[in-house]
Design a protein around this nucleic acid. Structure first.
Lengths: 147, 147
DNA sequence: ATTGAAATTGATAATCGTTTTCATTTAGAG
DNA sequence: CTCTAAATGAAAACGATTATCAATTTCAAT
């Protein structure tokens, strides 16, 4: 299924590619290159970082995932399901909780139209502290030093 | 006013700082370090990049601005007015249009509560092409090469 | 006004994630 | 089987951000 799809697009099926794709879909829904790289390496020590990176890019290219930027410096790849969703991002433990955005997207779509924008994507995020990390939040509230 | 505020927080008032703060608030609402650096340098060639960067960080720290990541690699600093707002981001010309998010934030606040999240911030973005760049959009739809 | 501790500055270097290069290998159509 | 385009892995390049450090400056307390 997946394989045929890639072939028709002119991409080749390699063992590395198979492993990377497979691993990506087995993992948490929001992974960084590093995380996927580690995971993939558990299965095959010979796979290079660039290969993982490039295949992640390919996964995006064929529309199966999308880059997301939570605010810390690192890019995560969000598996694209049919339903759009928002993210609750815990500033402490970096965990992500998804939530339904049907209502919000409706509003945003209108806004876009009002502004004569041709929409390509939405990003709806709430940053904060999850229940577990709540007590930690004070520690981090003021830890940004200036150098 | 601003000066007194900074002093009470233990920060010192320097000519560079004054110029940087002043420039930041004179500029477009979403600037990158580089943009602000250029602007500041028009007035004073001797100011260093780090100084601009650090003061931008300070501006965030005292709650007058906030980092935003539109998806291209660069961090912009969004002036924090009392009213929260969303961004329409043109993928072609990188221009930003703000829009009201009262309604959306209401919904999101509820969602956060439902998930026992302690909220620190919202991010509501719509990516697409502005009216002017609309015709360009096809050109860029498929320009992501894989290397 | 003078002093001294703490903060700030500017130049430069280190860092970190991302992306490219390049020589080599491999997939897969013919 | 053969040939070409695509894919791989190692390493280097890249670009933005952040840190280091010596010199300077602010400003509160004399």
């Amino acid at each position: 299924m997946m394989k045929e799809f890639l072939k028709t697009k002119g991409f080749k099926i390699t063992p590395q590619r198979e492993l990377i794709f497979r691993s990506f879909f087995e993992m948490d829904k929001h992974v960084s290159v590093d995380e996927l790289y580690d995971k993939v390496r558990e299965k095959d020590r010979s796979i290079g970082y660039s290969t993982v990176w490039r295949n992640l890019k390919l996964i995006c290219r064929v529309g199966l995932a999308q880059k997301v930027n939570m605010g810390d410096g690192i890019t995560r790849y969000d598996r694209l399901t049919k339903v759009p969703h928002g993210h609750l991002f815990c500033l402490n433990c970096k965990r992500v909780v998804e939530f339904n955005v049907d209502q919000v997207v409706g509003i945003l779509a209108n806004t876009a139209v009002e502004n004569k924008f041709s929409t390509r994507g939405f990003k709806v995020e709430v940053q904060g502290y999850c229940q577990l990390c709540q007590s930690e939040s004070e520690k981090h509230a003021d830890d940004e030093e200036i150098h």
